[in-house]
Simulated scan of single mutants.
Amino acid sequence: MNPAEWLARTARSVPEAPALYRDAHVIADYAGFARRAAGIGAALAARGIGLGDRVAIFLANSVDYLPIHYGIPWAGATAVPINGKLHAKEAGWIVEHSATKFVFTGDAALSEACGLPCVDPATEAFAAMQGTPGLEAPCPVAGSDAAWLFYTSGTTGRPKGAVLTCGNVMAASLAYLADVDDVACEDAALYPAPMSHRAGL
């Protein structure tokens, strides 16, 4: 199952429930959250990005991270989350090594150096992506299709890419509910570590 389908289903079930906050202010309910992600997915698809293509996210934690994170699989593409604390040269190596086709970043040095289409979430171009009429449903994927491509810290050499399939993501999510904690509709989550880390996603 496409991980973006979870967001689509939640938006259908509880569209008016609060989903995204900036400080104490709700900036999107689940319908709006899904609409943003679907718009990003549609904008990526319009650029020819789809199943198996890699899309990098080189950003600090922000509320924009989540629509991007769900918008990428909405188009069927594979997310490449890069720690926003890395140097632009380090991020550039990961972008090149992963054969990324599109980058979400506010880092001007990476945008200039990588030679790929880049969008900064602080710009009108990003707002336009979110406002693109969305794909009706997330792209169908197989359990063996790549959902995320994470890179190790590279402490003993160059970082190494680790693929998590859609099946891996589903198993990990269900295991969290079974082994770690319940999740209720009234819960809220604060994740202070980098959102590019697998544990937070």
Rank of each mutant, 00 (worst) to 15 (best):
M1R: 14
C185I: 09
P81F: 15
V169A: 11
G115D: 10
A175N: 11
N2D: 02
R158W: 00
M195L: 15
G32Y: 10
T165V: 04
A42M: 07
A34D: 15
P192F: 14
L164R: 12
L66K: 07
C139F: 10
V169F: 12
V141D: 03
V26Q: 13
S13Q: 14
S144F: 02
L116I: 01
A91N: 03
A162W: 01
A162L: 15
P133W: 08
S153Y: 06
V183R: 14
K101C: 10
A113I: 04
R54Y: 05
D181M: 10
P121W: 10
A19D: 02
D179Q: 14
H69R: 01
A128P: 00
Q130I: 05
A128Q: 13
D145S: 15
L20N: 08
A75G: 06
S153L: 09
A172D: 12
Y70H: 15
C185L: 11
L149Q: 11
T123G: 12
A171E: 05
P73V: 04
E96G: 08
R9K: 15
G39E: 06
A28Y: 10
L7Y: 07
Y191M: 15
G134Y: 09
G71Y: 10
L135E: 01
P133E: 15
Y70L: 09
A127P: 00
G200R: 06
P194E: 14
S13P: 00
A146P: 08
D181F: 03
S13L: 13
T156H: 03
A108H: 05
A171M: 03
A8M: 09
V63I: 04
F104M: 08
D23N: 13
L7F: 12
A127H: 05
A199K: 07
A42P: 09
Y191V: 12
F126N: 08
G92M: 11
P81A: 14
A109V: 05
C185M: 13
E5N: 10
A8V: 01
A122C: 05
V26D: 01
S144T: 14
G32L: 12
Y191S: 11
A24H: 13
W148A: 02
A127S: 13
V169Q: 06
T156N: 05
D145V: 04
L177E: 11
I49E: 05
V163C: 10
A75P: 00
P18E: 15
A37L: 08
P81D: 15
L7C: 09
A19S: 07
R158D: 09
H197L: 12
T123Y: 00
S173G: 15
G92C: 09
V163P: 00
G52V: 00
A45P: 06
H87Y: 10
Y151N: 08
